[in-house]
């Protein structure tokens, strides 16, 4: 069946992010004024409101910051996925991002806050891949 979940639409400030994701790489913006990476990508940094920013490749390592186990699908595209895990992960570079944890039979026992994760990519269309995370 065709992919029927909401699909991100790359924008001018995020096209590099999505292009790299398609190549199965996770890239972040970094502020040169304070040397911190940030998420989500935007041209002017939210930490210093600086235009002196770069793109950097993230290691793909992260830890589980928090999560929920969704039992009631919020959209028709997720009906076959429940239960599935929505999560906020803390990337090794510092920023946090929303994602899914790829795991069979999720429970409070096999999902421990602080556990190590690594990025994986799901190719959702010919043009797009979504970064997700799985336990190491």
């Amino acid at each position: 069946m065709a992919y029927n979940k909401p699909i991100p639409v790359p924008q001018g400030e995020s096209d590099v992010y999505w292009q790299k994701a398609k190549e199965h790489e996770l890239w972040l913006r970094k502020c040169n004024a304070c040397d911190n990476a940030y998420f989500y990508p935007r041209d002017i940094s939210p930490c210093c409101f600086s235009k002196d920013t770069d793109w950097i490749r993230a290691s793909g390592k992260a830890s589980l910051f928090t999560y929920g186990i969704v039992q009631r699908a919020p959209h028709p595209g997720f009906v076959d996925d429940v239960p599935f895990v929505t999560a906020i992960v803390e990337l090794e570079e510092g920023p946090k991002m929303a994602t899914n944890i790829v795991i069979d039979n999720p429970t409070f026992d096999n999902l421990q806050i602080g556990m190590d994760l690594e990025v994986v990519f799901e190719d959702i269309t010919d043009e797009l891949a979504l970064p997700k995370f799985k336990p190491v």
Binding site: Q11, H75, F78, F84, I124, L130
Partner: peptide, 8 residues
């Protein structure tokens, strides 16, 4: 729309 809803 880009960084949260695609994940549900």
């Amino acid at each position: 729309s880009q960084f949260e809803t695609p994940y549900g």
